[in-house]
């Protein structure tokens, strides 16, 4: 690689504080570690994202393929000021969220991809993303758009987001909404779960190994295996 040319293509990035890991107790009583991913984690994460690209249900295909591309671009220094957060239960990757800093004060929420469903994994990880923008990146607002009806209902209504007339989110799509610091702190107690510090042993294990379910299991987990004629 021509590193001189490569240096010109790599964007300058903000100095972004790392998201401090936390642990969330789920409805099952199990624990989910939420932590920042590193670029080293990306090839493994992509293995879990890839099977979602062909799932039409709930717009997983749109979200999955965009997350896949964003991960790739981040890993190869073509997408600036990004972060990726992971949810892991017993080291198994159950969800991925990402976002980036548009300016030092404005954050962009990119995507929320729940690989395991039914445990509010997506809701918890989305909340962690908002927490990161407001509390750790110290931003004033986060811009959000929804690509699926579930996302629209959950994010726009539960967070009471402000519609931004005429402001285009960088993902394109429908009108964008924003979460302000005020709104975040108003809804934090009912939406942001988890405790810190994440126990050292749990965190080390999660960092040490990201377990990815096989492709069929991921598709089954997201789509279900149920049907009128299955029995």
């Amino acid at each position: 690689m021509d590193m001189e040319l490569e240096q010109m293509l790599r964007p300058a990035e903000f100095d972004m504080p790392e998201y401090p890991a936390k642990v969330i107790t789920l409805a099952t009583g199990g624990q989910m570690v939420v932590r920042a991913a590193t670029r080293r984690d990306v090839p493994t994460i992509m293995k879990a994202v890839k099977p979602t690209i062909k799932i039409e249900r709930d717009f997983y295909d749109v979200v999955g393929s965009r997350v896949y591309a964003e991960l790739l671009a981040w890993n190869k220094y073509r997408y600036r000021n990004c972060y990726v957060l992971l949810g892991q239960i017993d080291n198994i990757l159950v969800g991925v969220v990402n976002g980036r800093m548009l300016t030092d004060k404005i954050g962009i929420s990119l995507h929320t991809l729940a690989i395991e469903r039914g445990l509010r994994i997506g809701a918890h990880l989305y909340a962690a993303k908002m927490e990161h923008h407001i509390e750790f990146l110290n931003q004033d607002e986060v811009w959000i758009t929804a690509e699926s009806p579930i996302g629209f209902r959950r994010w726009m209504i539960e967070y009471d987001l402000i519609k931004q007339q005429g402001v285009q989110h960088e993902l394109g799509g429908a009108d964008s909404f924003k979460l302000t610091r005020d709104l975040y702190f108003k809804c934090k107690s009912r939406l942001v779960a988890g405790s810190r510090p994440c126990p050292e042993d749990l965190l080390e294990k999660a960092k040490g190994e990201i377990i990815i379910a096989d492709e069929e299991s991921i598709v089954t987990q997201i789509c279900g295996a149920k049907g009128a004629w299955s029995k």
């Binding site: 789920l26 409805a27 099952t28 199990g30 039914g118 445990l119 509010r120 909340a127 009912r190 779960a193």
Partner: peptide, 24 residues
């Protein structure tokens, strides 16, 4: 095997932990 919801839930996860209020 016919049931819609196949998930074991725990008192800790739905009532007895700080996160329960958000899960439930």
């Amino acid at each position: 095997p016919y049931a819609h919801v196949q998930m074991d839930i725990a008192m800790k996860g739905i009532l007895d932990s700080p996160d329960a209020a958000i899960n439930n």
